[in-house]
Design a protein around this nucleic acid. Structure first.
Length: 290
DNA sequence: ACCCAGGGTCGTC
DNA sequence: GACGACCCTGGG
């Protein structure tokens, strides 16, 4: 592998900070120069926005342009999506303005499955640390600019970890869930492809729920972030909070039922509920005191 | 120092 | 369908 460069000029709706900090991914880190560096599949990439250019630079196993178009969802028209969301109400308009450069990454299904199992009742800094340690211990090294990066372990690589190994890496009670899910994937080689080909959301959700550690929220995240199902609406504490603040206004947000939020999201946002979720999540998390 | 919450899920009642 | 338990860590 050798370094490749790809530059987008005058490209709209692309802001690295918005993309990497809206909660969809865990392996991108901010550098001193404002750029972000991350690992996905067998690639290491650095992304920097300067003036009217987006500069992609890195070690890629395939053509960097092809890889970026796929991973950064460059063929989707976000101007149109944002226009539609802005028309819904003023809240959406404000959240879309705030996170104008958000894009939904097309992440690897296996990595998303494990990562979001780890995310359960956990906080983002700790989730990132756990995934980094998993990669360092079981993934493959890629050297670039005198730094060593590690790929996310494949199912085979992760199968080398015992439950106790996982516990030692800091997974806590999620050790068993990750261990069992890895075992299921390794015993059913065609399962991941089968999931990728399933178009029906309900069937997909049922299949995902069979993995230990995958409940409704984690299943929705997997579908939205790695299977391009833009109509699902993952509900976590932040989304519950913002939906309650904006529409429901219950004194105790924890008392608001998931069903009620789901219904509201489908009615208001419909087939792009997942996109709405990302703008709202990012907006609410970055403006906590509001 | 102590307490709480965090991109929830699971087992039990 | 409600309710508590669950590893661990950063921040109040």
């Amino acid at each position: 592998m050798k370094e490749q460069i790809f530059i987008l000029e005058n490209y709209n709706s692309f802001n690295p900070k918005h993309i990497f900090e809206c909660g969809q991914c865990f392996r991108w880190n901010l550098n001193n120069d404002g750029s972000y560096t991350g690992v996905f599949k067998n690639n290491v990439l650095n992304v920097k926005k300067e003036d009217n250019k987006i500069v992609f630079k890195g070690m890629c196993e395939d053509n960097i342009i092809k890889i970026c178009i796929d991973y950064f969802d460059l063929d989707t028209d976000y101007i149109d999506i944002k226009k539609r969301l802005s028309k819904i109400d003023n809240n959406l308009k404000l959240s879309v303005e705030f996170g104008e450069g958000i894009r939904i990454l097309n992440q690897d299904l296996w990595e998303a499955l494990i990562s979001f199992i780890i995310s359960a009742n956990n906080n983002i800094p700790r989730i990132k640390g756990i995934i980094e340690r998993l990669s360092k211990t079981y993934g493959k090294p890629i050297i670039w600019n005198e730094c060593t990066y590690y790929t996310f372990p494949t199912p085979e690589e992760l199968s080398k970890a015992s439950e106790q190994d996982l516990r030692n890496l800091g997974l806590g009670f999620r050790d068993k869930r990750v261990f069992e899910t890895t075992k299921i994937i390794n015993e059913n080689k065609g399962l991941l492809d089968e999931l990728k080909q399933e178009e029906n959301i309900q069937i997909l959700r049922e299949k995902l729920n069979k993995f230990p550690g995958v409940g409704p929220k984690v299943a929705d995240c997997i579908m939205l972030f790695s299977l391009k199902k833009f109509n699902v609406f993952p509900i976590d504490v932040w989304v519950r909070r913002v939906m309650n603040d904006l529409y429901i206004k219950n004194e105790d947000e924890t008392k608001v039922s998931k069903k009620q939020i789901e219904k509201l999201a489908q009615e208001k946002y419909g087939d792009i509920a997942g996109l709405a979720q990302q703008y709202l999540f990012y907006w609410r998390r970055e403006n906590e005191a509001v």
